[in-house]
């Protein structure tokens, strides 16, 4: 399955059967409008399949892993535990967040997919760490979105008034129980809009997976454009599809905000 890095920019589109010749004929016969329509309707199914097969699953799976990682990171970073183990753990997670927020996502993808095969660890991975494109992509996207979301969650937890902690402690709760029952449910509501932001960004960022040979939606649009010589149409079309997906997500965000805000007074 795995391609040599050298193949990266030679885009072979052997699997695509796009009627380039006949299309061009129609284009010149029936004029611009009908030709355009045909280009769009021919390309759309392939783009949608790629979106459903790769773009959306990669975004959803990465976001779920990312959220888990973000919660873990946030909890470790706000923890009050003073043991050496926790200090090291805190430093580690702080380093992780710094690393992934301070380097470009595209570079991260390249390091994980093209770079790690050269990381030879005797005993564990003597031949280098070779990941399939999909695994490398999901891993990188999860780590990246996890770093951003952890900051969102940490800020949300810290934004809950001290009185909520004190009321929880006063009824005899431990810190863990107070977090789980009182603080996190409120923090979740606060963090919903910025988390939705991160998810929407992630959906669009999955287009970078094209560069590590994943045939997701943007990659397919490039392959089609290379065949039908309509880059403007193809890239606008794929942009529109990303826009549709993100619009649906904003609606979902609005809905989630509404049901999680039931308890807030109706002034706003």
């Amino acid at each position: 399955m795995q391609k040599e890095p050298v193949l990266l920019f030679t885009r072979s589109a052997g699997s695509l059967h796009f009627p380039t010749g006949s299309l061009r004929k129609k284009f010149s016969q029936k004029g611009c409008e009908a030709g355009m329509w045909k280009i769009v309707t021919d390309a759309l199914p392939q783009l949608i399949v790629a979106g459903l097969q790769y773009t959306i699953p990669i975004a959803i799976i990465s976001f779920i892993f990312g959220l888990g990682l973000a919660l873990l990171t946030a909890l470790v970073r706000i923890s009050r535990k003073k043991s050496i183990f926790f200090m090291v753990l805190k430093a580690f997670f702080r380093f992780y967040v710094w690393l992934f927020r301070s380097t470009p996502l595209l570079v991260q993808l390249f390091i994980v997919y093209f770079g790690l095969p050269y990381l030879k660890i005797s005993g564990i991975a003597p031949d280098g760490i070779k990941l399939t494109p999909l695994v490398a992509g999901i891993l990188t996207f999860s780590l990246n979105t996890g770093a951003y979301c952890s900051e969102t969650m940490r800020a949300a937890i810290l934004s809950i008034p001290k009185g909520q902690w004190e009321a929880a402690y006063s009824i005899g709760m431990t810190r863990t129980l107070a977090l789980r029952r009182i603080i996190l449910p409120q923090a979740l509501r606060v963090s919903l809009p910025p988390l939705a932001n991160s998810f929407i960004s992630l959906v669009k960022d999955t287009s970078l997976a094209a560069s590590i040979t994943i045939v997701e939606m943007f990659e397919v649009s490039q392959q089609i454009a290379a065949q039908n010589f309509q880059p403007l149409v193809m890239y606008c079309l794929v942009a529109a599809l990303y826009a549709v997906a993100c619009t649906l997500l904003s609606w979902l965000q609005g809905y989630l905000e509404k049901i999680t805000s039931r308890y807030v007074s109706n002034i706003n």
Binding site: E166, A167, A168, I171, G172, M173, L177, I182
Partner: peptide, 28 residues
């Protein structure tokens, strides 16, 4: 010992009833 605060500190995400049973069910 139970504390009653000047600014109430009720749990805003829980109904009145759930505010009251939170301690008895979760802690006791």
């Amino acid at each position: 010992t139970e504390m009653v605060f000047q600014e109430y500190n009720l749990f805003p995400h829980l109904t009145v009833l759930k505010n009251i049973i939170e301690g008895p069910t979760q802690v006791l």
